Lab assay of single mutants.
Amino acid sequence: SSRTRFTDYQLRVLQDFFDTNAYPKDDEIEQLSTVLNLPTRVIVVWFQNARQKARK
């Protein structure tokens, strides 16, 4: 499976959201998916990875 290449804009939006809320609800994931034009699955994985990094 090929890795998703995020744009600077997508990363900024995801990071800004994460800084406020590391555990987005389903409807928030749907909204991010629509706004960023990314599959919900990709967003879910991004947040999982971001939470892992934040824990270190």
Rank of each mutant, 00 (worst) to 15 (best):
Q52V: 13
Q52P: 11
F18H: 08
Q31C: 06
T4E: 04
Y23C: 06
D16F: 01
S2D: 15
F18W: 11
R55D: 11
F18C: 08
Q48K: 03
N37P: 01
V42E: 15
F18L: 10
Q31G: 09
R12T: 10
N21W: 02
D27Y: 07
D8E: 08
Q52N: 07
Y23N: 03
L32K: 01
Y9M: 13
N49F: 12
N21P: 01
Y9G: 14
V35G: 13
Q15F: 07
P24Y: 01
F47Y: 06
A22E: 11
D19A: 14
V13P: 00
T40A: 10
D16S: 13
Q31Y: 09
E30F: 08
F18D: 00
L38M: 10
A54W: 06
Q48N: 08
P39E: 11
N49P: 01
A22W: 07
R51V: 11
L14A: 01
A22M: 14
L32G: 00
Q15R: 09
R12D: 07
P39A: 08
V13H: 15
Q31F: 11
A22P: 14
K25S: 11
Q52L: 08
R51H: 03
R12N: 11
A54K: 06
R3I: 15
V13S: 10
K53D: 14
T34C: 09
R12I: 02
A22T: 08
S1V: 15
Q48T: 09
S1R: 05
A50N: 11
L11Y: 07
R3P: 14
D16Q: 13
Q31S: 11
F17R: 13
A54E: 12
P39N: 08
L36A: 09
W46P: 02
T7N: 05
T7P: 03
P24V: 02
D8P: 14
S33V: 02
E30R: 13
K25R: 11
R55Y: 15
D27K: 11
L32I: 08
A50M: 07
S1Y: 06
I43L: 10
R41G: 13
T4D: 12
A50E: 09
D19V: 12
L38S: 05
V35S: 13
K53N: 11
E28S: 07
A22H: 09
K56V: 09
S33Y: 01
W46Y: 04
I29N: 01
R51E: 08
W46K: 00
D16K: 09
W46G: 02
T34R: 10
F6V: 08
Y9I: 04
R5D: 15
R12G: 08
F6Y: 08
L36S: 10
Q31A: 07
R51M: 06
I43T: 13
V13W: 03
R55F: 03
K56G: 11
L38Q: 08
D27I: 08
I29Q: 03
L36F: 03
D26K: 14
Y23K: 14
V42N: 04
R55K: 15
